[in-house]
Write a protein that binds this DNA or RNA. Sequence first.
DNA 1: ATCGCTGCAAAAATTTTGCAGGTAA
DNA 2: TTACCTGCAAAATTTTTGCAGCGAT
Lengths: 148, 148
Amino acid sequence: MSALTNRLRRYSRKVTGPRQTILEILRKQSHPLTCKEILAAALNYQCDLATIYRAMHLLEKMQMVKRVDFGDGAARFELIGEGDDSHHHHLVCTRCGAVVEIEECFLREIESRLATANGFTAVTHKLEFFGICSRCQRRSPIARYCKK
Amino acid sequence: MSALTNRLRRYSRKVTGPRQTILEILRKQSHPLTCKEILAAALNYQCDLATIYRAMHLLEKMQMVKRVDFGDGAARFELIGEGDDSHHHHLVCTRCGAVVEIEECFLREIESRLATANGFTAVTHKLEFFGICSRCQRRSPIARYCKK
DNA sequence: ATCGCTGCAAAAATTTTGCAGGTAA
DNA sequence: TTACCTGCAAAATTTTTGCAGCGAT
């Protein structure tokens, strides 16, 4: 947990219970979580939803978590690993919400090419894949996950 | 406007003023619009925001518009061209909201590879690039666009 | 002791829904 | 005529903010 301490100190912010708890929850979880899911996962350590939202903004600014969008109207967050090697994407089932982690990233060179071509700096990308998983292909076609 | 008529008929839906107006607005606009922006653009043809939201769901289901996410908490929509050749992505400035259209799509083959490898069908993707445009690099570093 | 943080409550922003009347087919 | 649509209003969801008191450094 020293990574958290160091970064918080750099921003003159404090090491608090909610922030430690949130990171512990995200570390245990393999897939991105919404703020409400984080709240629900914090069974023993109850804290306010507003605190979680505030913490996620801070952690995002400190580059400790990444905001992920699965297209259902709720922001999700996942831990960013220590090295820069944790960048990855997801393949999400639009019926049941199952998530497969996609290790490869195909767009590193393209980012810098786009930056040069368009005069942009600090180019990043957000990429997610969507489809129907094998289990849901065998089930009734009622959307269970994506409300939109 | 026969494309709209045909598809609406196929879904036993009706050709109405709001629906035609929305498509006209999107056709004139080169970049994705939020529902509120569509409302504002419909100066002469006032219609309710709820109607626009309902229309966007329908048009999305009929594959006439595509939902795009620029990560600021509001859904945006853009027209899908007649052929399937209109698939593209965007490079968005996180300071001023400027949008550059990226013609190429790099992920066609990867989609089918991921589908096969993970037992998914109907695999699609959402990809957007973010960065700081050349004008904003010369201006004060106050975020004007991305509220998050 | 200071400055930041939390919980609570209220508010804001986006999106969805119920309903009564109106309209396309 | 029938089924669909719209506007209005209310509600639901997600996220943000103000404030008073508490807590980390």
